[in-house]
């Protein structure tokens, strides 16, 4: 047994340990967060924690309902904007665009995915909030004074602003995953459809998207999960006013991640407060992990050709 072989087997063992550590990291996170949120879970029922909208830490009321509703609302708005924009763009890039456009678009999409969330937030504050406050909100709430446009929040810091900023943040992800999925669709399928006289769009609609629909679903799920957990940008533009549940796209919303970020500093001062906030983190962890597992699971099977 010489030194080289010893080194090889030592390396193998430590690398194996390392990969097991990576495997267990997410379980460790779940366990750690659960451990720390035990105090509040023991005292208050899960039902009340998740669905009650009463959040008065000083009085010992820790209902996350309003925050969960806020997250869902902002995420829904973001998805409503991001899905059509990014899917249409991805289809355009992969099926219609000239190769040079595609070669240019890909690095740009990557660059955008790398920009700091805070910078998106700054843009939200500087550009989106004024746009919503001065134009969208007065226009829509005057012309359509009903759900989901009626609101008395004139600040511009609202769910819609958050949704717009989030939509732009997640579209690079949706676009690049969708593009990759569309690229796995064999060119011969397009040729087969075109050669019976289908137009390009008919080919996309009936043949390409049909083949790729599962992969595209995964792309959307991954974008959704990213929107769900994004913190700084929504913290900066959503208004974060306590409110039972937002009833309008122009109402302020207080999403879960923003709550966690905002309570930093004060959460050790009140009993159970920290446990409730970490419980919120656990909820976020559970939801995003579930989405991601679904999304990546689908993609893995899609790529290996099982679907």
């Amino acid at each position: 047994m010489d030194v080289r072989k010893l080194r090889d087997s030592l390396a193998r063992r430590s690398m194996f340990t390392l990969s097991v550590a990576v495997l267990s990291l997410s379980f460790l996170m779940a366990l750690g967060l659960y451990q720390r949120s035990r105090p509040v879970l023991d005292r208050i029922s899960l039902r009340e924690l998740l669905f009650s909208t009463l959040w008065q830490p000083a009085q010992g009321h820790f209902g996350l309902g309003a925050f969960i509703a806020g997250t869902l609302w902002v995420t829904a708005i973001a998805m409503a904007i991001a899905i059509p924009l990014s899917l249409l763009t991805a289809i355009y890039l992969s099926e219609y665009a000239h190769r040079r456009t595609r070669d240019l678009a890909k690095p740009v999409v990557d660059l955008l995915a790398g920009i700091s969330p805070v910078v998106y937030g700054v843009w939200g504050v500087v550009a989106v909030v004024p746009l919503v406050r001065d134009h969208l909100m007065p226009f829509f709430s005057a012309r359509f004074p009903f759900f989901p446009f009626r609101s008395d929040n004139f600040t511009g810091y609202c769910a819609l602003s958050g949704g717009i900023v989030l939509a732009l943040m997640i579209s690079p992800i949706i676009i690049s995953v969708t593009d990759e999925v569309l690229r796995t669709v064999p060119q011969a399928i397009r040729e087969a459809s075109l050669s019976v006289g289908a137009t390009r769009w008919q080919t996309v609609k009936h043949a390409v998207l049909r083949k790729a629909r599962i992969g595209i679903t995964a792309a959307v799920i991954l974008g959704l999960s990213r929107a769900f957990g994004e913190t700084m940008a929504v913290l900066m533009v959503c208004g974060c006013a306590m409110r039972v549940t937002p009833h309008s796209v122009f109402d302020a919303a207080y999403p879960l991640p923003a709550l966690i970020a905002n309570t930093y500093g004060e959460m050790m001062s009140i009993p159970l407060y920290d446990a409730a906030v970490l419980m919120a983190a656990l909820v976020l962890f559970a939801v995003t992990t579930l989405f991601n597992m679904a999304g990546w699971g689908i993609l893995l099977r899609f790529e290996s050709g099982d679907m």
């Binding site: 495997l23 997410s26 996170m29 983190a281 976020l284």
Partner: peptide
């Protein structure tokens, strides 16, 4: 094993960074 590690890397990739922050905080407290 490789499949599992890759899958969990993908899952970890998708966990929001605020959750990592909260997890780090729990470890710090511990």
């Amino acid at each position: 094993l490789a499949l599992a590690v890759r899958f969990f890397l993908d899952v970890l990739w998708g966990i929001p960074s605020i959750v990592y922050g909260a997890f780090g905080f729990t470890v710090m407290m511990a």
